[in-house]
Design a protein around this nucleic acid. Structure first.
Lengths: 270, 270
DNA sequence: TCATTGCAGTGACCAAGATCACAGGCCGAC
DNA sequence: GTCGGCCTGTGATCTTGGTCACTGCAATGA
């Protein structure tokens, strides 16, 4: 798993200091699991050791070998921009480690966070396939490892292996689903507190899926960002989180969150 | 273009009367263009005579012939349910004629309309490929012609022609985009009037793309449905439309809408 | 012809939540 | 250390838009 150090230079000129400070060069399996609660990095989790392969898990033989050779793996510091809204798409990106914030911004500067991508997620697949511009901005919220696959290489690969096209289509349909559930939550949940509850519940469930049944995770977002995610204001998030704690639905210690009563949150989602 | 009359029986037992009343058996080109303002049915439009082929336009040779032979074309009356939320997906559906409402419903009975599908749109492609349940309900809002392709046949076809898989992926990415823009509109437009303006603008543009530059279209939705589409209440829609008219942004005569000032609506979207 | 039903239009009221303003806390930089 | 910047917490106010309640209108069907 060689890192593309050349690519690091892209960031080095402005962010060299950060890189070395924020990014632990050697990360043990344990460390990863603590730092990245959403991560599926452990070998036991879904039986797969390299998350960048998740979408292509079902590939067989030469196709898989070829896919593994594809693209360029790179380490990114916190707050690195992977791609920006309206950029021409020249590559798809697979998240191998860390969390990535996907957001879009209105002309007035209002920003909406669509989702937090976790290891195994593919970013910009739709834009890569249809040759369009990105609709969202992708920014790391912690030190990350990603794998960039140039659009031309990706297309050539899909062209060569029809089998892989189907898997790409599946990855796309995941991308679609998350946008859909996002819209659904925004539209159908009656209250802002309900939307926030839904977000916490999703994360709790994701964490439980990885670390057993304990719905504990590290919140990597500020209240402001949570607000952008739930379509509300920072103050409302602060108040809602306070209320959830008072009612015993969640526990918060610093950036460590734990969902105590999933059913309680569930009823709020309405 | 033979119709699958056998399939009609599915509806005939409950809806026979409606079918014959609502559905004009022979539709002239002109009639189509008046009845279905969003339709791309005219031969001049994007240079394609059969909209059910739109996603597979780029197919060549035998693949295209095979695709054309695929599936079953059927006429549907107004208000026919094509598939429902949580149904197991057994087929993808291509809209050939007419408009189809895609909606989802919360446990409390609140419904949200995602989009109005128009001829050429493919419904349930994501669910068909990933073998999942439908996330939305599809219901015709006017007499329609659709083409249903059984999941097994579709998969076999995609398996056979790798080229087609890519096109399917493109169709999927379209599906994704519409969900995304939906979420974006809900999240980023400051006011409810803004969201409504955005919807009208989209439709005006779609109509203009087909019938020249005149942004005139027939509104097939009630105020209530528009409200569900824009995430607001019926009363607010009524008031907003009234305001738009008063300000000279749109003209409404019965169900005929015309966007007078696209730029005016645009500024509202914010 | 009249009754029924569903949609459109409008006023009054009310509450959820956005916004503003400010205070305290934490953390990194110097 | 301490300074400054960002994040969190909280009260006061104000606006938007949801809800209720009612009327009028048009289509449908008996």
């Amino acid at each position: 798993m060689p890192f593309a150090d050349a690519e690091m230079l892209l960031f080095a000129n402005t962010e060299t200091d950060r890189i070395h400070k924020d990014f632990p060069i050697r990360i043990s399996r344990e460390k990863v699991c603590m730092t990245y609660p959403h991560s599926h990095m452990t070998t036991g989790c879904k039986n797969c050791s390299d998350r960048s392969l998740r979408i292509m898990c079902d590939l067989s033989g030469q196709a898989r070998v070829d896919f593994e050779a594809l693209g360029m793996q790179m380490k990114l510091p916190k707050r690195a921009i992977i791609f920006q809204e309206d950029d021409v798409c020249d590559a798809a990106t697979i998240v191998c480690m860390g969390q990535v914030k996907l957001s879009c911004t209105s002309r007035e500067g209002k920003t909406h966070i669509l989702k937090i991508a976790v290891p195994g997620d593919v970013l910009g697949m739709g834009a890569a396939i249809s040759g369009a511009h990105f609709e969202v901005t992708a920014e790391t919220i912690e030190p990350c490892v990603v794998k960039k696959i140039r659009r031309s290489e990706l297309l050539a690969f899909l062209e060569k292996y029809g089998q892989a096209s189907m898997l790409a289509a599946k990855a796309l349909s995941e991308e679609y689903k998350s946008a859909f559930f996002d819209a659904r939550r925004l539209a159908l949940s009656g209250s802002t507190a309900g939307r926030l509850a839904g977000v916490l519940l999703d994360w709790g469930r994701a964490a439980a899926g990885c670390n057993g049944t304990d719905m504990r995770f590290t919140m990597a977002l500020t209240h402001e960002e949570l607000a952008n995610l739930a379509g509300t204001s920072r103050e409302t998030v602060t108040r809602a989180l306070g209320k959830f704690q008072k009612e015993g639905l969640i526990e918060i210690h610093g950036s460590s969150f734990r969902v105590v009563s999933p059913t309680g949150l569930e009823t709020l989602c309405s």
